[in-house]
Design a protein around this nucleic acid. Structure first.
Lengths: 207, 207, 207, 207
DNA sequence: GCGTAACCGAGACGGTACGTCCCGTCTTGAT
DNA sequence: ATCAAGACGGGACGTACCGTCTCGGTTACGC
């Protein structure tokens, strides 16, 4: 006895404080929503969390990955997985929920700034794809696969492209800011995609 | 002669050197393509152009607007306005040209980084919309309006949404990097949009 | 005209501010005498002088050389060059002046700490020898050369060794702190050196 | 057995490991000679000794006192107590031995850096005087007292001043580095001191 | 043909934040 | 009570750029 359950994983030294971790994430989240990612500095986060800078660098290598964790604490779970038995309804519900979370909110700005940051922070880019894009697409893929199972759209449909059409269009307005994310916008985007998909346009051509 | 073309705008003192302007834009463009926007500093641009920092700040207020000008020197005009008499062909040609310019190229990275920078640089955001998004959309709008004129798609179609669908989807893959910008991707995106538009899905519902 | 008097020395750019220089030296000198060299930080000097850290690093490469300049502003000139026509009197006056400046004073501590710092700061070591040790020895050498000229001590006397005996002994008590720098100490050190020198002990043996 | 030798000092808990102590001193000594005191950090010593930092702090309060112990392991005993029946010979032998140990050697640098460190580390200053200066002077005092006993120099001679003259002069060249510690230097320093002492110059004046 | 106002290069300036190093203390589980 | 390990709050480091400013020197227009 006294031996660790899993030899190689036996922890040595003082364990990292969960309290410190929480304080950092809370401070980072606050600064992110108050002033945005560009104005958020590691030094401010440390000061606000009552923590040494080293305690932050020990856990996160870049500002981006820290901001991502702070962001996900708020964002994850706010995106529902609707399943009404009708593709148009499901997609509309999913996109509407996203628009509500994002339009004119600190969350929306944080989302935009994180994507921005990922353009020059490879660590963040990887984490972003694995922890945000991946899970979100997994949810949306289910919606489309259910529609396929129900026979609403052809089973040869390119589901990935359909998802890109749905959210790519929405991200476009978020990031370019040329036009607002209205409800009518949501309805029309969904209508075109559903009509196109039902017509078999997302599937390989039949010769 | 000697009198200014526009009386109130008469210039006094030494005029700004066009040579300086060109040197700055070339240096900025080089650094942008070599190292990216995030790594481009005003100080480096000045050093590389053999120019004083003040000569840069006299002309551009932020790094972003300078980078935009350097970028547009290369980018503008590389996007054709196809007009084949067929909507699907026109959209495919337009999107294909964009993909070719952007996929795996310094231009593509610069494009992504400029959109990123615009998220935290309001000056750049405005300039971006006015000088890139606006003109590009004006071109694409023509394609769609020709299709309407030909009767290919209903004249009540929401042209703005159709454009967002086309390029939003493409920008999505560029910025998120989760999937590649293949030719098949282009064809399917266009196919869905055209099918949806022809079905009247981008138009207000008829009661 | 318009050409500089000395071509290569033509100054370009904004000249360094003498006011900044003075403020830095004053702040450094104050901190040096108040808290000592070990507790003096570049950051504190900058804050106290109301100056950016970069303005200090632009002028001094190490803390030691900065402290040296701050020290010399006070120290230089406080060491007289006595010339009474009698070697013992001259040496006594010189050593007494040094002891008075140094014993139990901030100047004494600064002196000790600068020598300490020079043990691990090669830049300072060089500057110390050139700007403090050299000039001081030049003065003391004169005293001894006058004694030689008067015939008080042999002209073959090793003047360097005699100077080392005089001040080395005094520095010893300053740095080791094992015994105080009393006036009796001064008189006896001088007496032994003068007696030894007159006896020709500092000269090469005559075979 | 098991009972403590001295009742009130009976130890509880795990005893300190002598092996740890040795490992620390060896690591400290190595780093001291390889990189010097200024570059020696507690963290490096711990890593090199394969020991926790706390195991060092448990035994030594400051870097200086640790370095002192590491230094003395090498230095002590390398300084002989000559007794040839002739003052000049004895002093020459003593000073020559010191010069040999110190000139151009890691020991010499360590010696200089320890004196340097003592200028801002009161703990080390005290230990230095008690454990280095005191014992060394006790030895040298014997040499001089023997000379007094033999009648070579007056019994009223200020032995302390004579010792300061001998080693102060040598430390001066070690610490200031302005001139080398040659053998001729040693001979002349000794010659002046002995001549001065024999002339009664280190004694109170006889009225 | 002479001012003079804006330009130009150079580089100093105050300032912010960076990411790192090391400090000396503490908290763990194991001896 | 000691040990190895390593997290912790903290302080200062020296650097990189920022955007502004102050120099001496250079145009080119308008008097």
């Amino acid at each position: 006895m006294g031996a660790p359950a899993i030899p190689g994983v036996m922890k040595r030294g003082r364990p990292r404080s969960e309290q410190v971790e929480r304080a950092i994430l809370r401070a980072a989240g606050d600064l992110l929503t108050e002033h945005g990612l560009a104005a958020m500095t590691i030094e401010d986060v440390a000061a606000r969390a009552g923590v040494a800078k080293t305690s932050i660098y020990r856990r996160w290598s870049t500002k981006g990955t820290l901001a991502l964790d702070a962001f996900l604490a708020d964002f994850l779970g706010s995106q529902p997985l609707p399943d009404t038995g009708n593709l148009e309804n499901d997609l509309t519900a999913a996109l509407r929920a996203w628009v509500r979370t994002v339009r004119g909110t600190p969350t929306g700005r944080a989302l935009a700034e994180l994507i921005a940051q990922a353009q020059s922070d490879p660590d963040l880019a990887v984490a972003w794809r694995e922890r945000v894009v991946g899970p979100a697409r997994a949810q949306h893929r289910k919606i489309l696969e259910h529609a396929v199972a129900r026979g609403e759209i052809p089973d040869t449909s390119d589901v990935e492209v359909l998802m890109d059409l749905l959210f790519g269009t929405a991200y476009h307005r978020l990031l370019q800011g040329h036009l607002p994310l209205t409800d009518r916008f949501v309805r029309r985007v969904v209508a075109v995609i559903v009509a196109g998909a039902k017509a078999g346009a997302a599937a390989p051509p039949t010769p």
